[in-house]
Computed example of a mutant assay.
Amino acid sequence: MCDELGRILKAAERGEFPAPDGTTTVIGQPDARDAGVLAFTAHSVVFTDEDPAWIRERLAAAPSDPLAAAMNPVFLAELLARTGRVMGTIDLMTVARALPGPPEVELREIADPGHTRVARALAYRDGVRVWAADGGVLVLGRGLAGRWECAVEVDEDARGRGLGVALARAARRLVPDTAVWAQAAPGNARSVRAFQRAGFRPVGSEALLSATWSSS
């Protein structure tokens, strides 16, 4: 297993990113579960245990601006076929520093894995913990390369009163580390806005290739 991806993500938490030189870094997977592509400003990172020479050959052949080749659908489709993996959307990656003090919203920790967000988190994260609020759920766990990740779900009838923002800020107070990450599909504008209002800053995009598909 390769720990280079973990170092790249830790640096990104501090606001330090790969050089915007238009190149692609190819490294091994951090573990057997996760492979994929990250795109920062003018620099991409492909993390897979596949042959690096094959990766670079297919990137060069992708019908795209070289700056975007690693996120080109043609390249991603070839990578999926090569690895036998699956992926969902290309997500926006955001990160926020941890905050001191208790959450500003009343939470109760639960162990019930029946909620759809909980079931999905268990497929992609380790050490998952779950809290419920009146009208919402907060999930926290270790995801890609061991980084702490959070996810928020707000009931439809509880929307419009700032609960999503409050839960996202609560994650910053509950994370047992210096920072917490959140990923969202760019088209999910409501979620993107909530995390940004909670202090999460965009740092790049992510195409995560999973060994198994979670439909939750």
Rank of each mutant, 00 (worst) to 15 (best):
T23C: 13
A207P: 01
E156N: 12
A69E: 04
D134L: 15
V154Q: 01
S214T: 13
V137W: 14
L122A: 14
P100Q: 15
G204N: 05
R190S: 12
A198E: 03
A32S: 13
P103D: 02
C150S: 14
A35V: 03
E149M: 05
A119D: 06
M93K: 00
V37Q: 09
C2S: 15
G187R: 02
V154F: 07
R125P: 14
P103H: 00
E153H: 15
R190Y: 02
R97W: 02
W131H: 02
E16W: 12
G136V: 13
L79D: 09
G204H: 02
S210L: 15
E153I: 11
A151L: 06
W148M: 05
V152L: 02
L99I: 07
A35L: 08
L92Q: 11
N188D: 08
P186S: 07
V130W: 00
A170I: 09
V45A: 06
E78A: 13
A68I: 03
T116H: 09
F75E: 01
A11G: 08
F17Y: 07
P202Y: 01
P103C: 04
L9C: 07
C150R: 06
R190L: 09
D49T: 09
A70V: 01
R172I: 00
E206M: 15
L167F: 09
E13G: 14
L80T: 09
L92H: 01
G187D: 04
D31A: 05
R201K: 09
I27G: 04
P176H: 04
Q183Y: 11
L107S: 09
M71Y: 01
I90W: 01
R97E: 12
F75Y: 02
A96D: 00
I110R: 12
R147Q: 15
W54S: 11
A111V: 11
W54L: 13
A98H: 06
T23D: 10
L79I: 11
V74F: 08
A12W: 06
L9K: 10
P176T: 03
A68K: 10
G88K: 13
D51F: 03
A198K: 12
R161T: 13
S215K: 10
G101N: 01
R172A: 00
L9W: 13
D91G: 08
R33E: 08
M71V: 11
V95G: 01
R14I: 01
R108Y: 05
S216A: 15
A158G: 06
T41P: 07
G199R: 03
A62G: 05
E206L: 15
P103A: 05
G141F: 10
L9T: 04
L9H: 12
R97G: 13
R161W: 04
V86D: 00
G6C: 07
G187Y: 02
H115A: 15
D34P: 09
R159N: 08
G136K: 06
E206G: 10
A182M: 12
T41V: 14
N72T: 00
L38I: 06
D34V: 08
I27Y: 03
R197I: 10
V46L: 09
G101W: 01
G162W: 03
V95W: 06
G22M: 15
G141P: 14
A158I: 10
E16H: 13
V180A: 06
L167S: 11
E149C: 07
D3C: 06
A61M: 10
W181E: 11
R169S: 10
P18S: 10
A62I: 02
A158N: 05
E57H: 13
R197F: 10
